[in-house]
Amino acid sequence: MPGAYVALEGGHVVEARGRAPGTACGELVFTTAYTGYEESLTDPSYEEQILTFSYPLIGNYGVREERFESDRVHPRAVVSRELTEDVAEWLEAEGVPAVDHLDTRDLVGGIREQGAMKCGIAVGENATPEDALAELERCPGMSDHHDIGEQVSVSETEIHLGDGDEDGKTVALVDCGAKGSIIDSLVERGADVHVLPHDVTADEVEAIEADVLFISNGPGDPANFEAAQELVETFAGELPLAGICLGQQIIARALGGTTEKMDFGHRGVNQPVRDLESGQVVMTTQNHGYTVADPGDLEVTQINVNDDTPEGLENDELDVLTRQYHPEANPGPNDTLGFFDDVLSLAPRKRLVVAD
């Protein structure tokens, strides 16, 4: 087996077993999900990160392309207690370094105590601890990835026609790293979805004559998505607004709020969320390292049961509806699929007219 070394922020180096060769650096994070590894590995929100699986065995039901959320693996490297041959071969084919046979319980415990940290990985026949440390040394912080939108967004508009009739809604979805199942969830409800580049202009959005402006999930610091924030500022009050995960953070920032980096984020499929009006608690899928600190002009309608961070924001006057978690639930529980029905009911069939 090739040598493998994981260098952690602070200089500590862990030896592991190499499963897919290469070198990488990124922010070391963990997910508590015990299924859905295909969805997690193809989730664009993991761009520029090194993903650690807390569940000990990854790959026990193979690799099937129909479960992918995008067309490639997004984490810069993968860490696990044990990877099956199927997953290791897939990651090697994707050019993504992977290691296993290390104590992931200790690693996850360290992330929980110290927060998400920079990490360098080196895997290969001649790999050394110094190679991993060299990767660590060149690793930027997540807030430094100002071009991260270009890495995960479509470069040209893509149109997905709805499964319904001609009276279906038209959604302008700004792709900041959208999961495929978000698009599918809207299409299945009859919406025509125009998937737009992350830096799309207001004129291009206006030309679509959309019924809803939807800001997608995506990786990293919401402050790096200035164009999407400017769109929200332009169309707030003129067009219903919806967002998921990063989208919630961008909308909050555009409407007078602020965001902040979390210690180690929420990544898993069993995050409990309480609705403040009904008191109902639902289980949710989540993947984010930033959160809304101040909601600005929005009202907090749902919170995380574990730490009280905002999970749902709304403004009835402006027709705004956002969620921090992933209602499309791929992977994860189906408790919150109704969000997409709520989004499409924000506006009757109408066309956009931007005020002068």
Rank of each mutant, 00 (worst) to 15 (best):
H194R: 01
V195H: 05
V195R: 15
P197K: 04
V200W: 07
A202V: 15
A202F: 13
D203F: 09
A210S: 11
A210H: 04
A210W: 00
L213R: 04
F214K: 02
F214L: 14
S216C: 10
P219T: 02
G220K: 05
P222I: 10
N224Q: 10
F225N: 03
A228S: 15
Q229A: 14
Q229L: 05
E230T: 14
T234H: 06
G237I: 08
G237T: 10
E238R: 12
L239Y: 07
L241N: 03
C245Q: 01
L246Q: 03
Q248W: 03
I250C: 03
R253T: 12
A254P: 12
E260T: 13
M262Y: 04
D263F: 04
G265W: 05
G268M: 06
V269E: 13
L276Y: 01
L276D: 06
E277H: 13
E277A: 15
G279Y: 06
V282C: 05
V282P: 00
H288N: 09
G289T: 07
G289S: 08
Y290L: 05
Y290E: 00
T291N: 00
D297C: 09
E299K: 10
E299D: 15
I303G: 01
N306T: 14
D307R: 08
D308T: 14
P310A: 14
P310C: 05
E311N: 14
G312L: 01
L313E: 00
N315K: 08
V320G: 06
R323P: 00
Q324G: 12
E328P: 12
N330S: 14
P331C: 08
D335Q: 07
D335W: 08
L337P: 00
L337G: 07
